[in-house]
Simulated assay, not measured.
Amino acid sequence: MADGWYLREYGRHSDRDEGGADGWGRTVTVVRDPQLATRLPYVAEDDWDERWDDGAYADVTYVRGGFDRVNPHELPPPVRFRSPVREFVRKYGWRAYALPVLVVLTVVALATAKGPEPRRATAATGAVPTRPTAAAPSTPATTPSTSSAPAASASASAQPSAPTLKSYDLPPGAPYTLQGKGTFRVLPGTTRAVGSGQRFTYDIEVENGITGVDLTAFAKLVDTTLDDKRSWSGHGVQLQRVANAADATFHVSLTSAMTVRSLCGYDIAVETSCYDPGQSRVVFNVARWVRGAVAYQGHLDEYRVYMINHEDGHALGHDHAHSCLANGMAPAMMQQTYGLISATTHRACTLNVWPYPVGATDAPGAEDTDTDANNEYYLAG
């Protein structure tokens, strides 16, 4: 068959410049393709008006119509034009669905994200202030509340600020027994004799009715403190704990706050401990044992050691000291419950719980009879 132009619908190697849209809305393409000669009507090159072999004139319109008379199974497969979205999905598979989901999630996250929280100042810890600011002392466990708390104000500026504690005030803390039964019982236990010199014996007692104190730990701390070389034993005295009150030179007793007042007096309206020579009784105020002192806030165990050495010192014949040691420490016989300001020099001493601390050359310090002039209570601020 001579080379010429062949007509095919949606054929390969199509060139839109060689064809055009027919009246039926199809696209007709004129191509050189000898392989289609047996299937499609033939038209000689540049001879669109020549007659076909069946005698009919072959104009373009008639030839186009001839496509409908061709066996559809002999036609090449039609070219399907996909939409851009379907083509994108076919090419990228599941990623085409994941992409818009990720975009939506990103937008939501950006819209709901919050900025960083404002930084808040935090309180420093570690140092023990001599005159800290604290909340008002709380009510002892055995004292009933006499009035209900007022409703909180909506305005922070309307609320009263917490008062500043005096150095002799009882700090806030755990509840304690305000009133016991006024009688004492001996806690079981003994120790070996420690130190050398004048012999003193003691027992350990607790007032009946006191609660909330670990009595085993209380007795152990008394014994280990008096057994320490920095305490009184070994410095001209010998100490030993005994089991019977009748064998004791003095009695170390944990006492309720109201009983303390009856044994020690309350001329100065402050919770204190004392030594009662009439009963040979070292009187530890349970309020101070539980809460300590302002100068020792955060160091309750150290304050308890100070209580033992100070009040037992009275039982051993020592008076109060009113001046700092040469190294600046407060003597164990100074009234540190009132504060750390020397009543004679007005210097601030540093904390010290021992009568004979390491490095102190003038321990236990100069002692003197109490007067209003040398009482640390009047220097408390």
Results as ranks from 00 to 15, higher is better:
residue 186 V to F: 09
residue 253 S to T: 12
residue 72 P to S: 14
residue 46 D to W: 07
residue 289 W to P: 01
residue 57 Y to L: 13
residue 313 G to I: 01
residue 179 Q to A: 14
residue 192 R to T: 14
residue 209 G to A: 08
residue 39 R to Q: 04
residue 56 A to S: 11
residue 364 P to I: 12
residue 149 A to N: 07
residue 104 V to K: 09
residue 1 M to D: 09
residue 206 V to P: 00
residue 149 A to S: 15
residue 298 G to I: 05
residue 316 L to N: 05
residue 215 L to F: 08
residue 238 Q to S: 11
residue 112 T to K: 15
residue 315 A to R: 06
residue 207 E to T: 03
residue 287 A to M: 06
residue 50 E to K: 07
residue 25 G to R: 03
residue 300 L to I: 06
residue 13 H to K: 13
residue 241 R to E: 09
residue 272 T to R: 15
residue 232 W to V: 02
residue 71 N to W: 15
residue 136 A to I: 07
residue 137 P to I: 02
residue 1 M to C: 07
residue 329 M to C: 11
residue 157 S to F: 10
residue 165 L to W: 00
residue 93 G to M: 06
residue 76 P to Q: 12
residue 298 G to W: 02
residue 123 A to L: 12
residue 83 S to Q: 06
residue 229 K to M: 03
residue 109 A to C: 10
residue 253 S to M: 06
residue 35 Q to D: 15
residue 100 P to Y: 10
residue 188 P to D: 14
residue 150 P to T: 01
residue 368 D to L: 13
residue 264 C to P: 00
residue 338 Y to M: 13
residue 206 V to Q: 04
residue 275 Y to N: 04
residue 74 E to I: 08
residue 4 G to F: 05
residue 143 T to E: 12
residue 121 A to G: 09
residue 331 P to Q: 11
residue 15 D to A: 13
residue 361 T to I: 03
residue 57 Y to C: 05
residue 168 Y to G: 03
residue 317 G to L: 10
residue 154 A to Q: 07
residue 245 A to K: 07
residue 296 Y to K: 04
residue 145 S to D: 13
residue 153 S to Q: 05
residue 244 N to A: 12
residue 99 L to Y: 14
residue 59 D to M: 01
residue 192 R to G: 12
residue 43 V to L: 09
residue 288 R to F: 03
residue 4 G to P: 08
residue 340 L to C: 01
residue 299 H to M: 11
residue 156 A to L: 10
residue 211 T to D: 10
residue 216 T to F: 09
residue 184 F to G: 04
residue 372 D to H: 05
residue 347 R to E: 15
residue 237 V to K: 08
residue 217 A to T: 00
residue 162 A to G: 02
residue 9 E to Q: 13
residue 191 T to N: 03
residue 190 T to R: 11
residue 118 P to M: 01
residue 8 R to T: 10
residue 116 P to T: 10
residue 231 S to Y: 09
residue 273 S to W: 08
residue 49 D to N: 10
residue 323 S to M: 11
residue 136 A to T: 10
residue 113 A to M: 13
residue 12 R to T: 12
residue 257 A to I: 00
residue 198 Q to S: 11
residue 93 G to V: 02
residue 223 D to Q: 03
residue 69 R to W: 12
residue 258 M to P: 00
residue 105 L to C: 15
residue 362 D to R: 04
residue 261 R to W: 00
residue 261 R to Q: 13
residue 219 A to Q: 01
residue 317 G to E: 09
residue 60 V to W: 14
residue 162 A to F: 07
residue 169 D to V: 01
residue 290 V to I: 07
residue 4 G to V: 11
residue 356 Y to D: 01
residue 122 T to H: 11
residue 312 D to L: 03
residue 129 P to E: 14
residue 225 T to I: 03
residue 73 H to M: 14
residue 267 D to A: 12
residue 199 R to D: 04
residue 315 A to F: 07
residue 95 R to A: 15
residue 60 V to G: 09
residue 99 L to C: 14
residue 375 N to V: 02
residue 112 T to E: 14
residue 353 V to D: 12
residue 29 T to D: 15
residue 33 D to R: 12
residue 178 L to P: 01
residue 81 F to P: 05
residue 149 A to L: 08
residue 40 L to G: 00
residue 2 A to N: 10
residue 62 Y to T: 15
residue 174 A to T: 02
residue 29 T to Y: 15
residue 126 G to W: 05
residue 150 P to A: 01
residue 340 L to K: 02
residue 82 R to C: 00
residue 41 P to F: 11
residue 290 V to R: 03
